[in-house]
Design a protein around this nucleic acid. Structure first.
Lengths: 155, 155
DNA sequence: CTCAACCTTACCGTTTACGTGAAAGTTAGG
DNA sequence: CCTAACTTTCACGTAAACGGTAAGGTTGAG
């Protein structure tokens, strides 16, 4: 048992929490904290119980960070979005577990509804933000026009 | 001095905090709290120091609530946006205080930059949200296509 | 003038999303 | 095997954004 390096099986490179945090731009504290509301669980634990994350976890963390920073979602809301995603994946599994076309249609329909709910949530936020952009843009254009006026009358 | 009702001068109707809060859908606690970071100050105070708000204040509160609820901005960020707005208005005043075309152009340009900064901030958020919508939409479409497949092969 | 309803400031409590150690165990190079 | 660096689980601290309540002043209809 002279297995010094964990011998990365090539497809599953696992990193510890500090490297993970650095990689996605979070603190180790935040990464650990995200386990409480169930936002993510490390792909594995080392012999000595160290958290080990894989590439899927990193993507998930980037996704969470995006929602938090850019969209301003609370962790509870993010948890909801991720839960919906998980539900869809469970539906995916159930889909392959049956061959009954009617049952399959039902599962797929459920998924579509879930997607639509999520899109609705996001679109509502976008709508509000867009309104603000439009209003600001209108004022900007008006101001630019005033500048043009001054330019033309200065001759 | 049989002046019972404060005789609303028609243009400046002032309301107290409870009515104000109800009107915009906030609690009195929040409305008071917004004074701390300097988000708004009541238009006036009554003889006995009651806060009195005018229509401008109500609009401002609705604006704040929108940013908070829909856009998920922190109060500090909202304060920044409102400060920019205030700066633009000061520029507006300065604009009318001078007749020098060069100075006027400078002030207007400053305003445009301020508008653009705000638009940038909002667009960044929208962009991130839109990406999520697109991804979700793509999955939805794919799922709908799968349902159609099932439908066509059931005959 | 009276009194219920409303308001004031002040202060303590709460939730969220972490920051910051403390005390102890784990890893990995030399 | 030793040790520095990293990690673990508590556990307490903090800033933001309020909620709630106490103690007392203000308003305005009757």
């Amino acid at each position: 048992m002279t297995e010094t390096t964990p011998q990365p099986t090539e497809s599953t490179r696992l990193v510890r929490i500090q490297e993970t945090a650095d990689e996605v731009g979070l603190t180790t504290r935040s990464v650990r904290y995200y386990e409480e509301p169930g936002l993510l669980k490390p792909a594995a634990r080392s012999e000595g119980d160290y958290r080990l994350y894989d590439e899927t976890d990193l993507e998930r963390l980037r996704f969470i960070k995006g929602l938090r920073d850019d969209a301003g979602f609370a962790l509870a809301e993010i948890a909801q979005l991720l839960e919906d995603e998980a539900a869809r994946e469970r539906g995916h599994a159930a889909y392959h577990a049956t061959t009954d076309p009617a049952e399959r249609r039902r599962l797929l329909s459920e998924r579509v509804v879930s997607y639509e709910r999520q899109i609705e949530t996001l679109r509502r936020k976008i709508g509000r933000l867009q309104t603000m952009v439009d209003e600001t843009e209108a004022r900007r254009v008006q101001t630019v026009a005033r500048i043009a006026e001054l330019e033309s009358s200065k001759s």
